[in-house]
């Protein structure tokens, strides 16, 4: 009557790399694989986000399927036979990693180097990188028109860093177009839609309307885009600056969960502290108040406990 509704889930049985695996109905292949201890690389997957399966690095082979399938999006089915390390799978991952490695700066993408080695990806075989685009050049690209070079250099997304406010840095030379920031800013969570995917083809980019600077856009600086960025293309300016000056040291950081000091919603904060200074604030993905999201106050409004000099007297 007035009880909490209960959802019943069936169990399905499938085969992964020859092993029988039980999974919950509705679970993804990726979920079943990870519970079985298999390490499948992912980039565009976010546990709190709708799968867009755009990066294609998590592809697996499913018997009966003409092409490979994205494990992050495909739901398990009874009797499914999945291969996660076949030659086709390994080749597809290798190519995805090479394509990304040869066109995007992956220097701040966790595990990128490890995966490159594991899949024998050699991005350098596409030639030296083409010169970076001028500021705003990629933002103005017209769909359906491109300038092909002579093929001697590999086209990249290299371009100047966008620094147009005090809180965020957008380094789209590191953007792999995983769509996660757009989803976090959009329908999945924040619903502000300050950024969207614009353009087409290799000139596709994440942009505000007409590439207006963030302060002129709808952005409300919740930082939820940065929280989900898998490559460091989006970064808090504080982290960006510390990295630039060489004082960012994750090995020296502690993480403590607490509650935001502002309104009464009770958002969980994870305070990243280095040298008794809060250097970054995130929120746990698995806590159902925030699901990893915060507002501008929770994300950035911590400076008042760090101004150690007496105030106002």
């Amino acid at each position: 009557m007035s009880a909490v509704p209960v959802t019943l889930r069936r169990t399905v049985e499938l085969e992964i790399d020859g092993e029988a695996v039980r999974a919950r109905e509705g679970e993804t292949i990726l979920g079943a694989c990870r519970r079985s201890g298999l390490d499948i690389p992912t980039l565009c997957f976010g546990e709190t986000l709708t799968p867009v399966n755009a990066c294609r690095v998590c592809m697996v082979e499913v018997e009966g399927s003409r092409v490979l399938v994205p494990s992050c999006a495909r739901k398990v089915e009874d009797g499914m036979k999945v291969k996660t390390a076949s030659e086709r799978v390994r080749h597809a991952r290798k190519m995805v990693l090479e394509f990304l490695g040869s066109s995007v700066d992956l220097s701040t993408t966790p595990r990128a180097d490890e995966w490159m080695a594991e899949y024998d990806a050699r991005p350098e075989r596409y030639g030296p990188p083409a010169p970076p685009a001028a500021e705003g050049e990629r933002d103005r690209a017209q769909a359906g028109h491109h300038h092909a070079g002579d093929g001697q250099t590999a086209a990249t997304v290299a371009q100047p860093v966008k620094v147009d406010n005090e809180l965020y840095v957008r380094d789209y030379a590191k953007c792999i177009l995983c769509y996660k920031c757009v989803e976090g800013c959009g329908t999945d969570w924040q619903n502000t839609f300050a950024i969207a995917v614009a353009g087409r083809g290799f000139e596709t980019r994440i942009a505000t309307e007409y590439a207006v600077p963030l302060p002129g856009s709808a952005c409300v600086y919740c930082g939820n885009c940065i929280a989900v960025c898998p490559t460091g293309a989006l970064m808090f300016k504080s982290e960006h600056d510390r990295r630039a000056e060489g004082t960012w040291d994750e090995s020296q950081q502690t993480q403590t969960d607490t509650i935001c000091p502002y309104c009464g919603v009770g958002c969980n904060l994870t305070l990243h502290v280095q040298d008794n200074t809060i250097v970054k604030v995130t929120s746990p993905l698995d806590h159902d108040v925030t699901s990893g999201n915060l507002c501008v106050k929770g994300r950035f409004g911590f400076q008042h406990v760090q101004s150690r000099a007496p105030k106002g007297v």
Partner: peptide
Amino acid sequence: FRDESCGQCVPCRVGTVRQQEALLR
């Protein structure tokens, strides 16, 4: 194909460019 790739997935977005570059060479 480079022009008409929607740009959504990596294999097509970058693959069509790398294909074009190799052909150019």
